[in-house]
Design a binder for these strands. Sequence first.
DNA 1: CAAATATTTAACTTATCGGTTGACTATTTG
DNA 2: CAAATAGTCAACCGATAAGTTAAATATTTG
Lengths: 115, 115
Amino acid sequence: MVKYIDEQLDAVLHALADPTRRALLKQVGRKPCTVTELAEPFDMSLAAVSKHLKVLECARLIIKEQDGRTYWCHLNYQPMEAIAKLIREYEQFWESQLDSLEHYLDDTNTQEKPS
Amino acid sequence: MVKYIDEQLDAVLHALADPTRRALLKQVGRKPCTVTELAEPFDMSLAAVSKHLKVLECARLIIKEQDGRTYWCHLNYQPMEAIAKLIREYEQFWESQLDSLEHYLDDTNTQEKPS
DNA sequence: CAAATATTTAACTTATCGGTTGACTATTTG
DNA sequence: CAAATAGTCAACCGATAAGTTAAATATTTG
């Protein structure tokens, strides 16, 4: 039996696994934005964008700061560190395995997606 | 209107956003494994694990090599590079924004999850 | 060739996701 | 205070996800 410990990592990866949310995050990264500003380029309702922002907020990838009736969304980089760490782990494995696999990958890494 | 270009990135992030799949990937990283071997520690059916492996395979995070009636699963590190790149992008934004935000984050990064 | 083994596929269930619309709350402005 | 503005929340819908069990497909072995 394997335990499910890392809910935070789940949340961050899930939040990032959506192109709308990545685009929102990129915009927020350029400069802090209000919800309406963020929603403007998207072909969806404000409520839908608001939901996406909530997912990002729960993953702590953004922080909302209220100022009167408007909310300013800021990028928070911190949760990405966990992902960077995860990737470095796999990288280590990868390097220790490289020899055994490279003969195989040379032929397959450029192929199409499996069905 | 924003375009949805990066299906590959979607697939990789979605594949990683599940603790079972991360555990499978970690195991495969230690050494190439068969499907049955991989399924053994999990409290779920072989078919369920097989489905998870398919998700990982579609994201190209693993490669399955058939040998008779068994399949050997290998880690493929390549797709992680895209994520590493994505994170570096946000890191850049982050660094350019740090000043404007640090007064706020000092107080909030240790708080509980927003509802 | 029959039985056992390794794995996938199909059909189904329940839960979650991503979107919608409409109502609601809070704040600002005339 | 009434109207406009900024945003959230709730209820709903269709699609996808993650699991199940049972049947199907190869492949190996006695």
